[in-house]
């Protein structure tokens, strides 16, 4: 994490000679075809999440005896679950939950992680020592175990699941930001700023923070997918988002798995939804890393 990147210069170089915004976007899409696919998938997720009420053909929680385990086709394009709830509508509404969990926990995790990491890496001394121990403690537990204990402590609800997933992200983010900050402190331009008498906090905010943005964005996009997966695992173990919220992970768990051969659509469609969302987030994350962190550019 020692490379300093000037994004605008890099981006200008990448899109050299192209003027219009649309043209630039087209150029980026051609340069990073996988990233463009990822972006499209992610935008699809956002779109479904934002306009679920308009897009979904039915109410996602209304049960119906007549439609129990209905096969795909007819009024239920993707079939219906055991309680006769429309799968398509549930998957569309599920996008909202995955989005909330993915983006929500990433933002919360990054926010506290950045504050801790920046302060710890810049201030050093006692503060660093204490936060480092704190981070070590939190990192000494596997993410899922940590999330499990948190989920059990907080009780099952959407908000608590977001918090439970965000907490294990904090040490992860803090660690990367701290090590980046550590190497930045040694950089000539920071030393120069010190030499001309800039205050410590100003240096941290004006010079160090902007230069940690790139790794932060890389990290955040990478976390997006894993947050969605963690939610799915928690829900599978019965500790995630409770019924009747149409969480994809919950849709895959327990009861759905039981009826898999009688009604394979119960397992296939939510599984595809999760995989596509995480796949999109990962593709996007890779492309963002390639753009912002050219050390690893292919």
């Amino acid at each position: 994490m020692t490379k300093i990147v000037n994004h605008s210069v890099e981006l200008a170089k990448a899109g050299a000679g192209v003027e219009s915004r649309l043209g630039k976007a087209w150029f980026m899409a051609r340069t990073y075809p996988l990233g463009a696919i990822g972006l499209l998938l992610f935008l699809g997720l956002v779109f479904c999440g934002l306009f679920a009420d308009l897009l979904a053909p039915m109410d996602p929680v209304t049960t119906s005896a007549a439609s129990s385990l209905a096969a795909p086709g007819g009024i239920h394009a993707l079939g219906a679950d055991m309680m006769g709830r429309d799968m398509l509508s549930r998957i569309i509404h599920g996008a909202r939950i995955s989005l909330a969990v993915g983006v929500g926990s990433t933002i919360i995790g990054c926010f506290f992680g950045v504050i801790l990491g920046l302060a710890s890496g810049y201030l050093l001394g006692w503060f660093d020592l204490i936060t480092q121990r704190f981070i070590d403690i939190m990192q000494a537990l596997p993410l899922l175990v940590m999330a499990l204990v948190m989920a059990a402590a907080l009780g099952p609800s959407l908000e608590n699941t977001v918090i439970a997933i965000s907490i294990p992200l904090i040490p992860h983010v803090a660690r990367v930001i701290r090590s980046n900050t550590l190497s930045l402190r040694e950089m000539p331009f920071v030393e120069a700023a010190k030499a001309i008498g800039m205050s410590e906090s100003r240096i941290a905010l004006k010079h160090v923070l902007p230069n940690t943005l790139a790794p932060l964005i890389v990290l955040a996009t990478a976390q997006l997918g894993s947050a969605i997966l963690t939610e799915a695992s928690l829900s599978f173990l019965g500790l995630g988002i409770p019924e009747p919220h149409p969480s994809w992970g919950r849709m895959l768990s327990e009861s759905a798995a039981e009826y898999v051969r009688a009604a394979p659509w119960l397992v296939i469609f939510p599984g595809i939804a999760i995989s596509l969302a995480v796949f999109g987030a990962n593709l996007l994350g890779d492309a963002v890393r390639d753009i912002l962190d050219p050390r690893q550019r292919s």
């Binding site: 996988l34 997918g225 997966l229 799915a232 999760i274 995989s275 990962n282």
Partner: peptide, 18 residues
């Protein structure tokens, strides 16, 4: 190979196991 590895990171492991 990159797409394969990314899909490895995208499949919920309990789903794969099932």
């Amino acid at each position: 190979l990159r797409v394969l590895s990314l899909s490895g990171l995208s499949l919920p492991s309990f789903w794969l196991a099932l």
